[in-house]
């Protein structure tokens, strides 16, 4: 464990809590892509199947359970409790365009052809594109609530910190996880234009509205 990974996990947890608080307090999920949240729940489900078969540490187990609970609670709030405020007409990204190629790729490019390993690989590839429906929705509506931009900032920051963690682990323990690193780079690149808008607009107190 290193400081980059801890900060990354905290940033990830903070993002999920920010989103949950936003929906819970405003009792509204307008502007939030339910499809992205479904993809995140799928990412955690396929990645954390080893929760019961492979104990790594108390921290690892507790965080996995919290991440799973947050993901499913968020999906429940969007499609269940506050479904009347969910603007599905703006959440139109075709998930099959992501799921089909990623499923194929996880069968082709993995470390070992076992169910657990293929599901883990699927979750890594899926996570790198899971935010696309949300970014697509923002580009379609042309704006995002400030709290939503903070959510996206910490969500993008978490994987950027994981990149620093992998650089650190490569130099200190010669650890190299090519699938996770390549996917992590792709995932962080998708956030770059958002990061630019966040720094130049939101941090200056303006509302995030796309040109």
């Amino acid at each position: 464990m290193n400081v980059f990974r801890i900060l990354g996990d905290v940033s990830h947890l903070l993002a999920m809590i920010l989103l949950l608080l936003k929906i819970w307090r405003s009792k509204c999920c307008t502007g939030i892509s339910g499809k992205s949240q479904i993809l995140f729940a799928l990412v955690f489900t396929t990645r954390y199947l080893d929760l019961f078969t492979n104990f790594v540490s108390l921290y690892n187990t507790v965080m996995k359970v919290i991440f799973l609970l947050c993901a499913y609670l968020t999906v429940y709030m969007i499609y269940g409790k506050f479904r009347k405020t969910f603007d599905s007409e703006n959440d139109t990204f075709r998930l099959e365009f992501l799921l089909v190629p990623i499923t194929g790729l996880s069968f082709l490019e993995n470390y070992s052809f076992t169910p657990l390993e293929i599901l883990w690989t699927f979750s890594i590839y899926l996570e790198s594109v899971a935010i696309l429906p949300q970014l697509f929705m923002i580009s379609k509506t042309g704006e995002a609530e400030t709290i939503t931009t903070h959510y996206l900032f910490f969500l993008g920051l978490y994987r950027a910190l994981y990149l620093a963690n992998w650089i650190w682990r490569y130099h200190t323990e010669n650890f190299y996880d090519q699938i996770a690193v390549v996917s992590g780079v792709v995932q962080t690149i998708f956030y770059c234009d958002f990061f630019y808008l966040y720094v130049t607009k939101v941090l200056k107190g303006k509302k995030l509205s796309l040109p």
Partner: peptide, 10 residues
């Protein structure tokens, strides 16, 4: 990074 047991990251 091999299969299964090496997975110590979230």
């Amino acid at each position: 990074e091999g299969p299964g047991e090496g997975k110590d990251e979230l």
